[in-house]
Structure formats: C-alpha cells, structure tokens
C-alpha cells in the first residue's frame, strides 16, 4: 500500500490564485457593461489591447526569467492588471497608451521586481501613472457620456481612432469630447466660480458626473460581491470611503462654495474602483487588518489632497503608489498582539 506522507491539512486548500483573480474579473463585468453603455465601444478595444499586450509581456518575461509559463499565465493576474488599466484610460486612447502602460505595469513594476507576489508597487497604477505623465493630453480626452453626446462614435470609427490616434474626418473632438467632471470642477474653482455654479453644467449628475456615477455604482456592486465571497476584506474599501466622507464633509459644510460635497468626491473619478479593486491589491498593500485600515485611509487622504492641491485632476494612481511605499512600514507598526501576550 502506497500512502502519501504529507503534512496537514490533508484536504486541498479552498482557494487558488487563478480562482481569486477570476472572481475579480467577474466582479468587474457590471461596471464594464455600464462603461460600454455610457462611453461606447472604446472600452472593448482598450480591453483587448491591454490584455493582449499584458499576456505577451508576461509570456516574454516568464521565458526570460526561466519560469514555467502554464501556471503563471493561467493565474489571471496579468489579465486583472490589464482590465483595470483599460477601465482607467479614455475609451478612444490610441494603442500606444496600452502598450506603454502594460510595459511599465508588467515588465517593470511586476517582473523586474520578482514577478507575482514580489512587486512593491501596484502594477496597474504604475502603468497608469506612466501614461498620465507621458501622454497627458491623450489621457484627458474623455468622451461625453451618451446622454450628452451628439452621437457616440461607431465601431469602425472607434477602431480607426484607436489604431491611428486620429479622429476620422467625420467626427470632431470638440463636440465629442468633454472635460471630465473632476477637470471641470478643478478649472472652475481655479477661475473663482462657485461649486454650485459649476455643478450647473450638464456633465454633473445627481452626485458626481453623469454616467460616471452609474459606473461607480456598479463598481460598488462588484466590490460588495468580492467582500461577500471573501476575495477582499472590508477594511480597505471602508477605510477609503469613510475617510473621504469624514474629511470632505466638514470642508463642504464650512465652504460649500469652494468644496465639493463628499458624495461628489466619491462618485467622480476613480475613487470607488480604487476603494474596491485597486487599493485592495494584496501584493502591494498591507496584510494586517489594522494596516489595511491605515492603508485605505492614506489612499483617500492623498487622493483628496491631490485633487485639491496637486497638479492632476484625479490623484488616485499617485495616492496608491505613495501608500505602496509605506505599506511594509505600516505592516510592521500594526503587527497584531499574539494570543497570550500582554495587552
């Protein structure tokens, strides 16, 4: 009788890396559909491009590092990085945006630091920060959401725009594109207009930006699904959202003319996707439970500070990267008290 002598536990673990990553992808589907509805076909091409580049870079790097392809390609981690990146760039961004983003995300942030599990920085945010800095114009050209648009570009026009970086002659950027709500707010406040006045612009919806707030709702839905399935813990999202509300509410109450409301902060830009899908990246975040709270709070504080004082309309990418730097220290300072040790 040949018996296996391996240590306990004896049943296989209940999770796999690929399983967790697949759950994250499922959770993004509602927001993806909403994105498609409000901003047209662009997101689908962005997805295809980003996933394609990510997998290609992943395969090349695994080969160069002498690692087996199969288990690491099928862990879906590169796909998650790519999908989150695609959701953060404008729908008509030209193809080299994806290429550059994935180069920085997969090659530099992930594999040069040791591959899956070893990266210090969130790969998606490294890629995004790289393209924000390298292509600031392309990154600020968002389409107007469906209800405000004279007509979203069709499939062929979208494809041509992405492949050439030029809009087809039949379309005109000035009518198609629109400042994002955060951009509008920023320039408006800089011109000494009141927030209530700025918000009269139709790009603003009930809370945040029109269209944007619905996508944020679907990120929230997907995020709750991930908490329910125990893929992420509640600590980071709750810390991000609670800190945003706690910090922005008094400012808004004291100066409603110059400070946007907390709900507007939450429902515009990338705060909700960051709270549930980006700041929750396990590898580059904190692992202690109190550390996760500190990490989330830090992301929210830095985002608000960059939105208010910084040079970019939305600061989520930089906020996450800055907190990534602090994560090991936070973990160290928040080590829990072990059983039986003095309080």
């Amino acid at each position: 009788m040949q018996l296996t002598l391996s240590g306990p536990p004896h049943f296989p673990p209940i999770n796999t890396v690929g399983g967790i990553m697949r759950q994250v992808l499922f959770a993004l589907i509602p927001a993806l559909v909403a994105h498609c509805w409000f901003f047209g076909w662009g997101i689908l091409f962005q997805l295809a491009l980003a996933v394609g580049f990510a997998l290609a870079f992943e395969a090349v790097m695994l080969r160069l590092r002498g690692k087996p392809l199969q288990p690491f390609i099928s862990d879906y981690s590169a796909v998650v990085t790519a999908v989150l990146f695609a959701l953060c760039v404008p729908p008509l961004a030209p193809w080299w945006i994806s290429l550059t983003g994935m180069l920085f995300a997969i090659v530099i942030a992930k594999h040069l630091y040791g591959g899956l599990g070893s990266n210090l920085f969130n790969p998606t945010m490294v890629g995004l920060a790289a393209v924000i800095i390298a292509f600031p114009i392309d990154l600020s050209q968002w389409l107007a959401p469906r209800s405000l648009s004279p007509g979203l570009p069709g499939l062929a026009e979208t494809l041509r725009a992405i492949l050439t970086g030029q809009l087809p002659a039949s379309l005109n950027w000035d009518t198609l594109s629109q400042a994002t709500p955060l951009d509008a707010l920023r320039t408006g406040v800089a011109e000494n207009r009141m927030v209530t006045e700025i918000r009269a612009n139709p790009i603003f919806g009930d809370f945040g930006g029109r269209g944007w707030e619905w996508i944020a709702n679907f990120y929230l839905l997907g995020g709750l699904y991930l908490i329910w399935r125990r893929v992420i813990s509640w600590h980071v999202p709750v810390a991000v959202l609670a800190t945003t509300i706690i910090v922005s509410t008094p400012m808004w109450l004291l100066g409603p003319d110059v400070n946007p409301s907390p709900l507007q902060h939450i429902f515009s830009g990338a705060l909700v996707i960051a709270a549930f899908f980006i700041a929750t990246d396990p590898v580059s975040g904190c692992s202690t439970l109190r550390g996760k709270l500190v990490f989330g709070a830090g992301v929210a504080l830095l985002t608000l500070a960059i939105r208010r004082f910084g040079g970019y309309p939305d600061g989520v990418a930089f906020a996450v990267l800055l907190m990534n730097m602090l994560a090991p220290l936070i973990d160290r300072l928040t080590t829990p008290r072990a059983y039986g040790h003095p309080r």
Binding site: N15, P282, T288
Partner: peptide, 21 residues
C-alpha cells in the same frame, strides 16, 4: 494548481486564531 508564490492576500492573517502573521 502547483505551489505558487505568496501573493500576500492576508487570508491567513484573517483566520489565524493566535493572531500571528
């Protein structure tokens, strides 16, 4: 799946009854 690198997911921290890391 084969043994993979630790992705620091922290699930082990959440379930440890001795509050270890």
């Amino acid at each position: 799946q084969p043994e993979m690198p630790c992705i620091n997911c922290g699930e082990c921290v959440r379930v440890c009854p001795a509050s270890l890391l």
